[in-house]
Design a protein around this nucleic acid. Sequence first.
DNA 1: TTGAAAGCGCTACCAG
DNA 2: CTGGTAGCGCTTTCAA
Lengths: 333, 333
Amino acid sequence: MNLQEVAILAKVSTATVSRVLNNVGPVKNSTRTRVLKAVAELKYHPNLHARNLAGGKSRTIGIIVSNMENPFFVDIYKAAEQAAHSKGFDVVLANTDYNPEHLMHNIRLMIGRRVAGLALAVSEMDPGLIDELCDKNIRTVTYDAGLLRRNSSNIIVNYGKGIERIVSYLHELGHRRMAFISHHRSLRPLSFRERGFREAVERYSPVIEWRIVADVDGIDGGRNAVRAILASGFHPTAIICVNDVMAIGALHELREAGLRVPQDVSVTGFDNIKLAEIVNPSLTTLHIPRDRLGQLMMQHLMADDSGDEQFQPETVIDPEFVVRESTGGLNRK
Amino acid sequence: MNLQEVAILAKVSTATVSRVLNNVGPVKNSTRTRVLKAVAELKYHPNLHARNLAGGKSRTIGIIVSNMENPFFVDIYKAAEQAAHSKGFDVVLANTDYNPEHLMHNIRLMIGRRVAGLALAVSEMDPGLIDELCDKNIRTVTYDAGLLRRNSSNIIVNYGKGIERIVSYLHELGHRRMAFISHHRSLRPLSFRERGFREAVERYSPVIEWRIVADVDGIDGGRNAVRAILASGFHPTAIICVNDVMAIGALHELREAGLRVPQDVSVTGFDNIKLAEIVNPSLTTLHIPRDRLGQLMMQHLMADDSGDEQFQPETVIDPEFVVRESTGGLNRK
DNA sequence: TTGAAAGCGCTACCAG
DNA sequence: CTGGTAGCGCTTTCAA
């Protein structure tokens, strides 16, 4: 079923049907209603592929994230989608599970779809791979990717500063043995955070002993990491997690092991997802404004080319320290 | 940049390039490599719209869910996507936030994209609206929607049975005042669950006092609902939540109010998401196998037309009762 | 093994 | 205000 059939039923040309459907150009009211009736009668739905092909331009934004199981990314996606909708764009979402091949596959799909813009909130950015793809003339905005190309902007969070804040806070509380829990250490953005931790902690060298352990992203990852730490014989008094979800897993595993938080061990997260204030004990963490992040990404993608809006190629967001119940001074002073 | 340019650079016809790109038909090896080189050189990405238009068929499955913030739906999506990928299909995801208009919009988009199949895991199904749309010849599978149409199958969870199980269990423990926490009462599938509760509880009439309260889906919804209950003066000894996420919110609000779970109040969830075993106290709930659900949906959509596989128009899944720490007998016997 | 050409369904331009 | 028509980029016969 196509435009033609509608046109025949309405006794007009396809051009007119098109005009009616797109609210463009002048159409006599009587014919418009006639067309609309035919459309309804046939339950006609325009073929969007044909429309995109013929029109040339697309009103669709692609969004790719690393892990939809982590509320952090869901929040970004929701903010971004809302911003896109408010400007009349549709959104198509893809998830990579931190897998660079999935990322490539999805980027290819997005390019193939000729999206009007592409937002990448992923950690598995490989400069090499992306470089190749991104000199299509697709506008791109990345989060936490640290690469800048033509018509591509980047939004980054100052993780180093955040982690430094955490470490110094814990140090003041008297903590001298710390562990850092992460995931996907080999991915660049994650390795930067790890380095942030290392630098912060080495500033106090050799007073602070430390250790880094990694597992998968998620609750189970946090649990496994804590289990590994405890089994290793290294007994940190503070555990710093690369994100809240892993921290929540850590919290649970510590409880299982009979350790009290924060009396025996302090725990910190990163992101400040909703759950962080709900868990027991509630989580000390760093707030990253996902709303703003999502909005910013869309703003960059949909900014007028008119050059009116100041196009910022890079935006830095400072996380905000939120102290809750999961951190405290040492029991044995 | 299009097929033509590649063809020219490779000194062949567009037909040949197409053959190479699709691995179809015979192509001399030397020309194949020549074409591939041209493709790489130009960083050519085929226009998927054109491809779909010309090919007629699509290898894309549409998935629409109600709330990506609820891990229940994320789990379904992930299982479904994996199943789809394993059969060589791509997936495009959409989220409705329980908004029937968003649902309509997204269904229209999916139809416009001429997806090979459409999976609807949404609660806001309105028989009227959908009826109209679903007699396109798009294969559809719904979860929890209770409507059956031509080339459309349905997967349902036996909520009534599950809730009955919960109520009788709580009754045995001595509970006589129960509250049911839900969301979007006016949406059919949700109202069915509410009815399930009502029927189960009235079976013990007039022994059990009960009450139903609703708020939005999510942690805050659970919190608000509990606050409303406590403020109402009705003091239930057991709170039954329509899903785990709301139950987790309820748990938190009860703690804030100084009530102990399960000593003062028992709480149950539904779904058995990962978090249910992590929260403290861990959550008594009903397990719904999201993996199987997602796989089933894809199986229904991608079943061979060959009639070989037995096409089941309806599949019922029984949830499985999981007792954890959030329920117990009454303190004062 | 390859090329030419006819569409796929729609938009947009040009006439009338 | 409306119709005719030339593409959009690709797949797919049909011939060569």
